[in-house]
Structures are given as C-alpha cells and as structure tokens.
Nucleic acid binder design. Structure first.
Length: 340
DNA sequence: AAAGGTCTCAACCGCGTTCGT
DNA sequence: AACGAACGCGGTTGAGACCTT
C-alpha cells in the first residue's frame, strides 16, 4: 500500500534540494569506508541531514564512480529506443543494459529528447508505431487523389516518404474500417505471436483504398495489399519478432533488426508493385523525392551500428534512423491539430 | 541588453515490492 | 500468515541554464 517518505516519521527536519560539495564528500567518504546499504541509518552515521532516500538517489545518480558523463552516443540512443520498444518505461531495466547510465538519466533523456523527436516525426513514443490516426491516409489520399474536384488539401506539401510495403499494410488497416489503427505493439501481440483479432480479420475484400486510387487515376496496374496481409498473418516474424528478453513482440521492418536500417526503401517483396507505385507517384505527382533517399540522409545503419566512435548523437541521426524504419515524416507546416 | 519562453536534469514524491521479524 | 520497515522504481517538479525575440 505504499508508505510515507522515510524521513517523515522521524520528525526531524531533513535538508532538501541540491547537494553541496561538502555533503557529497561526506557521503562519498562514508560509502568508501563502510560501503552502501541500510540507507535509513546511513545519513545519521555519515553526519548528513538528509533522508536515506535522498542519499541513495544522490549515490546512484551522481556519485557512483562508474557513472558515464556526457552526451548519449548514437549507439546508446539506438539501444534506448530499441529497448523501450520492448520494455516500455522500464528505465531501470534499460539502464541495466547501458553501462554507466542511470535510469534517471535515461528517463530524462527520453522525455526531453527522444520522445519529442518521435512525436515530431509522427511516431507514437509509446507504441513506436506511426501515429497514422493523425493522418488518416485513406481520407487524405481519397480526397486529394480520387476526387476530380479541386484538391482539398495540397497533398504535395505533405511530402511523406513511405515505405511501400508499410503503406500497403497501412492501407489494409485503414480500409478495415479502422478497427485497428495502430500496428501491433508489445501490448497487442502476446508472447506466442498471436495477432490481435482486428488485425487477423483484415481480409482481402477489405483492402480497397490503393487499388481504388489506381483505378480512378488510370494507373493501369492495380496492386493488392493482400500479399502483405497474408504474409503478416502467416509469418508475423517477418513483420516483427519476439523479444529475446521478454518474449514480447518487437516491431521489425526490413532486416529483422528493429530500428537499424537497411538501405532505405529496399522492399523485400519481389513484385513489381513498388516500381509501379513509385512510377505512378513520381509520374503523376512529382513524388520522386518520396522514394529516394534524401541527399541529406547519413549513411544508412546496419545492424552493427555503423556510427563508429560517435561521441554525440544528433537529431538528424535519430530522425534518419527512424525514417529508415517508417519512411514517414510530417512537415513542419502541417497543422496537425486539424486531424486530431 | 533585457525580457520572456523553452529546455534540461537533479531531486523529490508516492506507490508497489521485497524483506525481516 | 501478518505486519511494518526498507528498498527501488517511475512520474513529476522546479531551479537554473540556455535560447529567442
């Protein structure tokens, strides 16, 4: 049922706020001499006007000799994102796999950096899936491409960069009446890779959005998402894999390693769908940029993390990292609230 | 240069779990 | 088995640093 803070019971007035150098030294001296543990009695023995909890926190988050300082490297950031997709907000577990980093530090870094960046990129930081519900693609595509009336939205300004396989899969989900708007997450798929019902129910007949588009715009070559859905149903591991740590589902695209990028836009589907769709888009709407790696993109990562000796991570690196997974970004000038 | 806004991160708080009696 | 103390974790806060206008 929880309990009151340890120092409340004593009735003593414990010091709060930032630690002074003198306090740090007292704590360090004591721990070097007697070791840590029994945090309740430690402050008294060490001559500190702090509660044990505060001492423990100061030690674990700041004074511990093995704490690594400085910015997170790209490898560390990649690890955090990957582990977070598996473990969620289990900061202590994540920290256990990042030597020298504390759970508090990782939590702060997540909340102040990674989380915001993911949101800006249209990726839900909780599910690690594209926040597709923000941009109902079927609505946008239909209103923009299928209507002969003047385009209600300047679609070219969206400049999304879709992974065609993902787009096909997304279309199948949308067209199944949005019963499941997100991709399966660690919460939705159980340890034995059972696909949640809404996803399993996505049927051949449900898949209509993109073929309709193609027909309406005289593409000539229609394509189906059926293959992808069936592949997903038959081989969910192709879309995700159970975590070695928890047995839970980890979303995976391309090379079976979550988050690491094969060269972008390499679609394993051996069909002509990609080229057709790419051709369609580039010919009809000048979307060439959608299906090509942006010039500014850094070298794609492989599963061995090619950012060697990276001392600091940049937004560009993380964004390209996620872009290589989802190929989806939201322009700054898009008024997101309109879709919420 | 100054004011206001935003960001960062150390520290606090409260709760659930574990441990000892 | 029951209870309370201690521990550890995750969410939140707020002061100071930094940035923008």
């Amino acid at each position: 049922m929880g309990r009151a803070p340890c120092c409340d019971k004593t009735g003593l007035l414990m010091k709060k706020g930032p630690w002074s150098q003198e306090e740090d030294q007292k704590l360090l001296d004591y721990i070097q001499k007697y070791g840590y543990g029994n945090w309740r009695t430690l402050p008294t023995n060490a001559g500190l006007q702090r509660c044990g909890k505060s001492c423990r926190l100061r030690w674990t988050n700041y004074l511990r000799p093995d704490i690594k300082r400085g910015r997170f490297s790209f490898e560390e950031e990649e690890t955090i994102i990957r582990l977070h997709s598996i473990l969620g907000n289990k900061w202590s577990l994540i920290a256990a796999r990042l030597p020298g980093r504390t759970d508090n530090e990782i939590k702060n870094y997540w909340n102040t950096n990674i989380r915001k960046r993911l949101l800006r990129m249209g990726i839900d930081p909780v599910t690690h899936s594209p926040r597709l519900q923000l941009l109902d693609l079927s609505t946008i595509l239909n209103s923009s491409l299928c209507n002969n009336s003047p385009t209600q939205m300047n679609f070219s300004r969206l400049q999304p960069r879709f992974n065609p396989a993902l787009l096909r899969f997304a279309a199948s989900l949308f067209s199944s009446n949005c019963q499941s708007q997100d991709f399966p997450t660690q919460n939705q798929i159980t340890s034995n890779n059972q696909i949640p019902p809404p996803l399993m129910q996505t049927s051949v007949q449900d898949v209509a959005v993109l073929p309709d588009l193609c027909a309406d715009t005289n593409l000539g070559t229609s394509f189906s998402v059926n293959d992808d859905v069936q592949e997903f149903q038959q081989n969910p591991a192709g879309y995700g894999m159970p975590s070695a740590l928890t047995g839970e589902y980890v979303p995976v695209l391309n090379d079976g390693y979550y988050g690491s990028g094969d060269p972008p836009f390499v679609d394993p589907t051996p069909s002509s769908v990609n080229s057709n769709f790419q051709s369609y888009c580039s010919n009809s709407f000048g979307f060439q940029s959608i299906f090509s790696t942006p010039p500014s993109s850094p070298t794609p990562l492989n599963s061995n993390s090619t950012y060697v000796n990276s001392c600091s991570s940049t937004e560009d690196e993380t964004e390209s990292y996620y872009n290589s997974m989802w190929k989806f970004e939201i322009p700054d000038d898009l008024y997101i609230n309109a879709f919420m």
